[in-house]
Nucleic acid binder design. Structure first.
Length: 441
DNA sequence: TCTGGGGTCCTAGGACCC
DNA sequence: TCTGGGGTCCTAGGACCC
């Protein structure tokens, strides 16, 4: 441990602060706040009997499910996020399992993000359980970033969950620092200490370098961030394109990406993996209708209309095909775009081929305030003849039906109303989504 | 007992227009 | 008639993140 790289932990949510004497902080200060085993921690908060026991939030072991989050009590058994649930079940047979309660996690997350925004408006939420904060000392607020971090940890713990925080001069450093000590860790990397901090770490530690990039680097003898920092820039650019320069800069501690408050949604999608592969056209269309309805409802709830409709299919060998189409006009109405999805599926699938997953997505949202109801069906060109009346009447009726359906679903839950084409076979999903109407407030 | 679901971003090729 | 380049949009696929 050097004065450049301080690594500390505060034992109790101490009123007086549990921090040792601090060196002054000169330069930018970015925090990454990461909620510890978030989903599992909320479950333990809500179920006192589960505290101190291995808890796994994830899909069913016998339905292609995977682990979403494992509590810290489950991790010594080797259980990790993204692991197939079947493997997790074998490693930790006595764990308590739950499919999760996402509205509850969202509620907790919102409360905690509120705590962060009370510290500074410069908050970038990167996921339900992570956010960057820019707390660079200013002329008016000279508070040490470690003191801000400590206060955040205390306030988060008052909500009943814990967090780990990394503090550095860039998002790259803050993110990696937050991973160094979990749970309830607080890791500082002082300005100037970036390269020494990064050098011994495996390349995979850095955000943006996944399995594929790691392998390409390894085959060129680059295994640590120190080796990446010293690697030839032109070679990196040749192999990785734009990413090559980015990873080189970051490995040298030079990341200057700002904390951005950009919460604009760019796409909305739903997908579903089946316990048993689908082969019949009727079943595939039913699944498409179900996904299309979920997407449509979320679009309407968010007040979004999209122009780009996408369909994704995964087969039993895990290969993926995708198709996308531009709509004549932006839509949030699945009754209008589902027929188009039925045509799109023909481009990537032939009945009889086993289908493991189907996904429907919408993107290309129109600008805010540009919402305009057209008289014409979105999936068809405007009629060139004078035969407009039936289309108009049809569309108005449909809108009324959609809105009535949303009302019922809002009150009684997602499964309360189904259109004829939607999938009825509840047993045939991975079971990672909740069937409890209380989950859909 | 293998490998979810919700996202973002990048790339490369083709169409089209000026 | 032949030629070229740049910009933009669209599409499919893939890497990556939590």
């Amino acid at each position: 441990m050097t004065d450049r790289f301080q690594h500390t932990r505060f034992e109790e949510p101490a009123v007086g602060g549990g921090l040792p004497p601090l060196d002054p902080w000169e330069g930018p200060a970015i925090l990454l706040v990461d909620l510890d085993a978030f989903f599992a921690s909320v479950e333990q908060l809500d179920h006192p009997a589960w505290r101190g026991k291995p808890v796994i939030v994830g899909g069913d072991p016998d339905k292609h499910g995977v682990v979403s989050t494992a509590s810290y009590e489950a991790r010594p058994f080797g259980v990790r996020s993204a692991m197939p649930s079947s493997t997790a079940k074998r490693l930790c047979p006595d764990a308590i399992w739950t499919h999760g309660h996402f509205d509850r996690y969202r509620e907790m997350s919102d409360a905690i993000m509120g705590i962060l925004r009370a510290e500074t408006p410069h908050v970038q939420q990167v996921s339900i359980d992570e956010a960057f904060l820019d707390v660079t000392p200013t002329a008016v607020n000279r508070e040490h970033p470690a003191r801000v971090a400590e206060r955040i940890q205390r306030r988060v713990e008052e909500q009943g969950v814990t967090c780990s925080i990394g503090v550095g001069t860039s998002k790259t450093i803050a993110k990696i620092a937050s991973d160094m000590d979990k749970p309830r860790g607080l890791t500082l990397v002082y300005p100037g200490g970036e390269r020494d901090f990064l050098a011994p770490l495996p390349v995979r530690t850095m955000s943006g370098i996944g399995a594929a990039a790691e392998e390409k680097l390894r085959s060129r003898g680059i295994c640590t961030l120190g080796q990446l920092a010293d690697a030839d820039l032109r070679m990196l650019e040749r192999v990785f394109g734009k990413l090559g320069r980015v990873m080189h800069v970051r490995a040298n501690g030079g990341d200057d990406a700002p904390v951005e408050q950009d919460d604009e949604v760019k796409s909305v999608s739903n997908e579903m993996t089946f316990a048993h592969d689908l082969t019949k056209r009727q079943d595939v269309e039913a699944a498409i209708a179900t996904m299309a309805a979920k997407v449509g409802r979320r679009l309407r709830r968010k007040g979004l209309r999209g122009r780009t409709l996408a369909l994704r299919v995964k087969f039993d060998d895990l290969s993926v095909r995708s198709v996308q189409r531009q709509l004549i006009e932006p839509s949030d109405d699945e009754l209008a775009y589902t027929p188009l999805l039925y045509r799109m599926i023909d481009e990537v699938w032939r009945p009889g081929t086993p289908v493991r997953l189907i996904g429907v997505g919408m993107s290309g949202f129109e600008e805010e305030g540009a919402v305009q109801e057209s008289l014409f069906d979105v999936t068809e060109a405007a009629p060139s003849t004078g035969d407009v009346e039936p289309v108009v009447r049809d569309k108005c009726k449909r809108r009324g039906l959609i809105e009535a359906t949303d009302l019922v679903k809002n009150r009684f839950g997602e499964t309360a109303v189904r259109f004829g084409r939607e999938l009825r076979n509840e047993e045939n999903t991975t079971g990672s989504s909740s069937k409890n109407p209380a989950d859909y407030k």
